[in-house]
Amino acid sequence: MSIQVFILCKLIEGNNYPYKIKKQLSEPIPFDKLGGLTESKLYYHFDSLVKQGLIETVEVIKEEHRPDKQVFGITAKGREDLPKKIYKLLENAGSISDMIVGIAYIKHVDRDKVVEILEKNLKEFITRREHIMDFEIQVDKDKEKLIKYLDGYYSTRAEHTIFWLKELIKQIQQKEI
Rank of each mutant, 00 (worst) to 15 (best):
F6Q: 01
L8S: 03
L8P: 00
K10S: 08
N16K: 01
K23R: 15
Q24I: 13
L25V: 07
D32N: 15
K33P: 03
L37H: 08
L37P: 01
T38H: 09
E39F: 14
S40Y: 12
L42Q: 05
Y43E: 11
F46N: 05
S48R: 15
L49V: 01
V60K: 14
I61T: 09
H65V: 02
P67V: 12
K69N: 06
F72Y: 15
I86D: 02
K88S: 08
K88Q: 12
E91W: 00
G94I: 04
S97E: 10
D98E: 07
M99R: 08
V101Y: 01
I103M: 07
A104W: 03
V109Q: 09
D110E: 14
D112R: 12
D112F: 04
K113C: 02
V115Q: 00
I117R: 02
I117M: 02
I117T: 01
L118A: 03
N121S: 11
L122R: 07
E124M: 11
T127I: 07
E130S: 09
H131G: 08
D134M: 10
F135H: 04
F135K: 09
V139R: 02
D140F: 03
D140V: 00
D142I: 08
I147Q: 05
K148S: 15
Y149A: 14
D151Y: 08
G152R: 12
Y153S: 01
R157E: 11
R157V: 07
T161Q: 10
I162H: 03
K166E: 06
K166N: 06
E167V: 01
I169E: 00
I169H: 02
Q173M: 05
I177V: 10
I177F: 13
